[in-house]
Simulated assay, not measured.
Amino acid sequence: MSVSSLRAPAHSFTEQFVQADQLANQYGTPLLVLDIDRVRENYLALHAALPGVTLHYALKPLPHADVVRALDALGGSFDLATNGEVDVVAQCAVPASKTIHTHPVKRVADIEHALAYGCNTFVFDCANELHKFAPYNHEVELLLRLSFLNEDAAADLSKKFGVTPAQALPLLQQAHSMGIRVRGLSFHVGSQTRDPHKYVAAIEQCKEVFELARRAGLPAMNTLDIGGGFPVSYQNDNIDIDIDSYCAPIREALAQWPQTTHFIAEPGRYIVASAMVHVMSVMGQSLRGGKPWYYMDDGVYGAFSGRVYGEPAQRFYTLHQAPEQPCVLAGPTCDSIDVITEHVNMAQLQDGERVFTANMGAYTWTTSTDFNFFAKAPVISVDSALSMAQLG
């Protein structure tokens, strides 16, 4: 099945925009409002859809301490890829036993930094990486990353990392000869994977590699990491993906494995994308080529940086209802490429008026810059469990 299976969202976007508008009165714009309740709901929904799979939240799309603390309190685990991400979970007092380090290419100093924290499970995908682990062969456990190309994905991560199943056995044998324990295999079917059967095909091929390793007399592997890529709806802001239906074929594929197998997933975008809304204001306006241009106080060097490298396009809203007209939303910098969108219909805007965007939790704040010395949008965390909003 595909992402055509949908459900109503847990929160009204109108309510979120009203809340963001109220916070903007206090903190100004641009502003990102992070709903920690929604982070919890997304995590628990995926946890229920993949029973028996340990969810390691991938910090890459939103390495925010409030997200880490909320997921840690729910019993969640974490997927790290850099020294900075190691430092975030360490500062949040996350036990190192709940973390894995999944960047396939690392400096020796990166390995040592993670080991000093206590994280000892790493990913590799080539012989060069194995040699970096040789001095630590009694401390580390590895996962070999496999590559499964997916042209349908928003970002095909197998183009940059992973080996084919046919290349796996020689690397497993080399690791064994070096006294390095390989716990199992990992893969990532690509960002925004619309077809869950991509996971199924990868899971089945991984099972064949497990069997090849067994026949070769290698030490038994017991871990399969199915990566991330669980999709989020962007253009259909009023509906969410039914993650339970989406994961049904994945559950069926995993049920064919021995009960002793430890399954891992690395969700990132799915956990946080829908948990943050953005608010920005009109700095000024002009009429260019017969079309209104609105110059906003955030743009593609800020929270909309993903538009430059292929992130899904979001929709834009105001809090008042009026006839819409084609217009352009441009960013604040003195760079001509700083245009958020040239093709959008909106009600006529006034200087200082606020524009809202949903689904802004992934690859927005974390990829923002302060180019031209326009400050990146701060994050306000809203948490009903604490009955508070805090700048973070």
Rank of each mutant, 00 (worst) to 15 (best):
F133K: 04
H320R: 15
C126R: 01
A273H: 10
F356K: 09
D225I: 03
A377Q: 11
Q26V: 09
L142M: 10
L142Y: 02
W293R: 11
Y234S: 07
V272I: 14
L329N: 00
G392F: 07
F371G: 01
A265I: 02
E266W: 03
V53S: 07
M388I: 03
A275F: 00
L31Y: 00
N128G: 12
L50M: 03
H138S: 14
V189W: 00
Y270R: 15
Y136T: 10
N238Q: 12
N137G: 04
S158N: 12
F230G: 01
E129H: 02
S5C: 14
N222C: 04
L212F: 03
T341W: 11
K60N: 00
L142P: 08
F133A: 01
L218Q: 02
D125Y: 08
T14S: 10
L171Q: 08
P323L: 01
T54G: 08
G306M: 09
D195C: 14
L34N: 13
Q350G: 13
L391F: 09
L142F: 11
D335Q: 13
K207I: 02
N150F: 13
A153H: 08
G289R: 13
Y117L: 10
L142W: 04
E353R: 04
E311Y: 10
N372E: 14
G352N: 02
D110S: 13
H320M: 10
F316R: 02
A377V: 11
